[in-house]
Each structure stands twice: as structure tokens, then as C-alpha cells.
Amino acid sequence: MKRNLLIVLLGTTSLYSMVSRVALADPSEGPLFIDGEIEMITRTESVDGHPLPEVISGWHYRTESTQALEADSFENPGMLAVEEGEVLWSTVEGSEGKSCESCHDDAAESMVSVGSSYPKWDEASGKPVNIEQRINMCRVENMGAEPYPFDKGGQKQMTAYIKNQSLGKPVEIDVEEGDMQAWWERGKEMYYTRTGQLDLSCASCHERNNGKYIRADHLSQGNVNGFPTYRLKQSALVSLHNRFRGCIRDTRAEMPDAFSDDLMALEVYTTWRSQGLSVETPAVRQ
């Protein structure tokens, strides 16, 4: 009996220490300046209808040294991929003898508001498209080139390069156009539906428990404004749909395919939730 009591006491102590750790785990103070120059909106009032009063960038949930890595565009290893994307931008591919640059000239001008405004409604396909899909449509229809397979062939680099042109601009998407509302609804349903052996929804971690720890991971609000993101774990750029799949796998559920209707709906909904935060691509996360 004494022994049991001791175990209970020990259990209580560790619970207390866990609680104090949670108390210390509030999102950090800002602000985030990239290279001391470009101020990023990392905390802002959320859009109408958002369940949380304030949207907070995942940057605030990271340790100081991870934060510092994103704040210096030279040290940020994700910028190596952005530079690869820059080379691809002017590389001619396909039967039409064109590069992205042939039609879109200087990405710094032509793409400046592209990275902050996708996914967008696409009338021709009757679906929302994200930047990865838009790049592939351009490759197939205008360049006569092969579409990039998911996460391969330069897809992450090109997406990161385009989104990086919008660095600092607030995410803002149009959920009124076409049938976007239906996709928003479907995405919302996915967000709140518990799945997998662990019976977790997106909201279980990122809405109800953000700021707390799940094992050793400091849970953020799961905003998507920094993708593709340089993740220390992979030491490489990680695309949004790769991260969606990773999160879903961690709940021990079946993973939908990248760019499937399910994950596109989730991208529409989570991007809507992230509105107002600056595009941080390539963000640096754990």
C-alpha cells in the first residue's frame, strides 16, 4: 500500500511539473523581422467566423534558435531551395521552348501577390487549385512539359520560390468565387472530424490545445502561411500536403493522396484560417 501511495505521489509531482511546463509554453513575444528589415505579421486578429480570436504564426511556438534561423535569410537553409527555384524559373523546358520567365518575366513583379492568394477557384476544372497545381497546368498547357510529380522534380523549389515573392504579404484568399464555399465547408468538416486509431481531429491539437505539449512537441495553431517550410527534422523543405499527410499519419489514420479533393478542401479551409498572417515561405520549423 505504501508503495502505491508513493507512486501516486510521484505521479502527482510529475503532473505538477508538466502543468508548470505548459504555463511556460505560451507563444513567444515577437516581432519577427526578416534580416531586420521586412516585418512579418505573426499575430493578428482573425477573420470573421474564425473560432479563435487571434491567429498566431507557428514561428512563435518555436525555440529562440529556430526562430533566429528564420529571421536571417542567409542562414535559413530553406533559401537554398528558393535559389534552386529561381534557376528553374528561367530554365527552358518542354516542346514549346519556354521557361516560366518567357511569359511571366520578373517573378518579383509578376508573382508578388500570387503566393499570398492561393488556393484559387479554377473555372475550367470546377475545383480550387493551389500553386503546385497551377505550376503544373502552366507546364503542361503552355510549356509542353511534363507535370512535376508530387514533391519531386523541382515542385517544392518552384513553389517556394513563387511564394517567397510574397514574403511579408498577408495571406488573403477568395472563398466566395465559384463553388469555393462548398470546398470550404468540406474542409471545415475534415478539420473537425476525429480520425485514426488515436481519434484526433486537426482541431484536437491545433485549436483546442495549441500552446500545450503533445509529448515533446509544442503545438501551434497549425497555420499554413510558411509552406513549403524548412523542417529541421527532415533538414529539407516540406510541402503543405506532405505535412497534412504526416499529421494524419500521426493520428494513425489512412492518408488521403496529395492534391486529392479531401486535402484540397483542407488547404482551402486552413488557408482561410491563416488569413492575415504574413507569407513566411520558407518558414523554419522543428
Binding site: 518555436r62 525555440t63 529562440e64 534558435s65 529556430t66 534561423l69 529541421l232 527534422k233 533538414s235 522543428q286
Partner: peptide, 12 residues
């Protein structure tokens, strides 16, 4: 060095 490294793959 940091007191706590968020990921062992990249510790400054």
C-alpha cells in the same frame, strides 16, 4: 549552445 535543442538534427 542552446539550453534546449528543439530538434537534434540541427543544433547551433
Amino acid at each position: 549552445t542552446p539550453e534546449i535543442a528543439e530538434n537534434g538534427n540541427s543544433v547551433p
